[in-house]
Amino acid sequence: MEHQGSLQDICAPRTKSALVQECGDALEQLARQKEVALVWVPGHIGVPVNERTDELARSESTGSRVPSISRR
């Protein structure tokens, strides 16, 4: 799953993926307590914070380590 398709998969009424089902269930549970909005943001290229977020997400999914950045 990637990009806009991931959002569509989570919002679909049925899925074969246990992970997608788990995410959907967690979102439904959260939505009982808070307002939840899922938004697809097209393209993070050129936005430093978004590029860093993508880098961290990729490293988590692959189990690799990403050097931290210092904030002053």
Score class of each variant (00 low, 15 high):
30 L>P: 09
60 E>R: 14
32 R>Q: 15
54 D>T: 10
7 L>A: 06
30 L>C: 12
12 A>Y: 02
17 S>P: 00
68 S>A: 15
29 Q>A: 15
34 K>E: 07
45 I>D: 08
18 A>Y: 04
40 W>Q: 05
21 Q>H: 12
63 G>R: 02
19 L>A: 14
16 K>D: 08
56 L>Y: 10
43 G>H: 10
48 P>E: 03
3 H>C: 06
19 L>R: 12
22 E>L: 14
64 S>E: 15
68 S>C: 08
39 V>R: 15
46 G>Q: 00
24 G>W: 01
65 R>W: 08
55 E>M: 12
17 S>C: 02
63 G>S: 02
1 M>D: 06
50 N>T: 07
31 A>G: 15
1 M>P: 12
18 A>V: 10
46 G>W: 00
5 G>T: 06
11 C>N: 06
64 S>K: 14
67 P>R: 15
27 L>Q: 05
5 G>Q: 13
20 V>F: 04
27 L>F: 11
37 A>M: 11
25 D>W: 07
34 K>V: 10
41 V>T: 14
1 M>L: 09
69 I>L: 09
40 W>Y: 15
2 E>L: 11
40 W>I: 04
61 S>Q: 12
40 W>P: 05
20 V>G: 01
72 R>P: 13
30 L>E: 13
35 E>I: 13
38 L>M: 06
11 C>E: 01
10 I>F: 00
59 S>L: 04
26 A>M: 13
18 A>H: 09
16 K>F: 05
20 V>A: 05
5 G>F: 04
55 E>Y: 11
11 C>S: 11
17 S>I: 02
14 R>G: 01
